[in-house]
Amino acid sequence: MPEQRNALPFEPKGSGKVNKPASGTPRQEAIPRYVADRMARRVAVYAGLPSLAGMGVFVGSYFLVTRGIADIAPGLTLTGSGLFFLLGLVGLSVGVLTSSWDPEPGSLLGFENFKPNVQRMKESIRAQKQQQKQEKS
């Protein structure tokens, strides 16, 4: 007998039902584990390196100014680090969208997977919208 509980204030309507798969049935995942791991590694590289560079701009500017090597305007430091952090933000999406969904890992940069993954994303959004329309009817 499934547990009955009160829905939390931020839960969508209808989420109070607990749908557990039968004990012998394997659980189907939206994203396979090997793909999720691959996405995590790519995000760490594509978002992590620019973010580290953004922090490095602050450290490098501080070092250059305090040693008297260069006179760097604070606005230039802020702009430079901001651009790297923005690049890191773009890297989050690129890291996910360049991951291969095949069991084989694909190429190093993975840009050949970008277009098919964008198509998958569009189809998924379209299917969710269609499902929501059917539920409202």
Score class of each variant (00 low, 15 high):
39 M>T: 06
118 V>Y: 13
88 G>C: 09
40 A>N: 02
95 G>W: 13
50 P>G: 09
11 E>P: 12
83 L>G: 14
83 L>I: 13
104 E>M: 00
11 E>D: 15
122 K>G: 03
129 K>Q: 13
65 V>N: 11
95 G>M: 10
108 L>V: 06
36 A>E: 14
47 A>D: 07
25 T>A: 15
63 F>Y: 12
70 A>K: 03
91 G>T: 05
101 W>R: 08
78 L>Y: 06
65 V>R: 02
109 L>S: 09
15 S>C: 14
63 F>R: 11
31 I>D: 07
22 A>D: 15
98 T>E: 06
43 V>N: 04
54 G>H: 12
75 G>S: 12
75 G>I: 05
103 P>C: 05
100 S>Y: 02
74 P>F: 08
132 Q>L: 12
66 T>M: 04
110 G>I: 08
43 V>D: 03
6 N>C: 02
23 S>V: 14
6 N>G: 13
47 A>E: 08
18 V>G: 05
41 R>A: 10
50 P>T: 10
50 P>I: 09
130 Q>Y: 09
35 V>C: 03
125 I>R: 10
80 G>R: 04
42 R>K: 15
95 G>E: 04
134 Q>V: 08
38 R>C: 03
126 R>G: 00
23 S>Q: 14
56 G>N: 04
28 Q>C: 03
122 K>W: 12
86 L>W: 14
1 M>C: 02
37 D>T: 10
119 Q>W: 00
94 V>Q: 06
6 N>K: 13
67 R>S: 09
34 Y>K: 00
60 G>P: 00
93 S>Q: 06
41 R>T: 08
69 I>L: 12
75 G>D: 11
95 G>F: 06
44 A>D: 00
105 P>I: 02
86 L>R: 05
120 R>N: 07
50 P>Q: 09
28 Q>F: 09
53 A>K: 01
9 P>W: 02
79 T>M: 09
101 W>A: 09
68 G>W: 00
31 I>G: 10
11 E>L: 07
135 E>G: 00
93 S>V: 07
30 A>S: 13
52 L>K: 04
96 V>G: 01
21 P>I: 13
33 R>Q: 11
53 A>P: 00
133 K>Y: 07
32 P>L: 05
31 I>L: 13
74 P>N: 12
11 E>T: 13
31 I>M: 13
45 V>S: 04
73 A>S: 15
107 S>L: 01
22 A>M: 08
11 E>N: 13
119 Q>P: 01
36 A>H: 12
68 G>T: 02
12 P>C: 08
65 V>P: 00
34 Y>T: 01
85 F>D: 03
121 M>I: 06
9 P>G: 06
131 Q>Y: 12
96 V>Y: 06
133 K>V: 05
89 L>K: 02
81 S>I: 01
33 R>T: 09
106 G>I: 03
59 V>I: 15
119 Q>K: 06
11 E>Y: 05
101 W>P: 01
17 K>I: 13
20 K>T: 11
47 A>P: 01
122 K>E: 14
2 P>W: 01
118 V>M: 15
108 L>S: 07
78 L>R: 13
64 L>H: 01
73 A>F: 03
108 L>F: 10
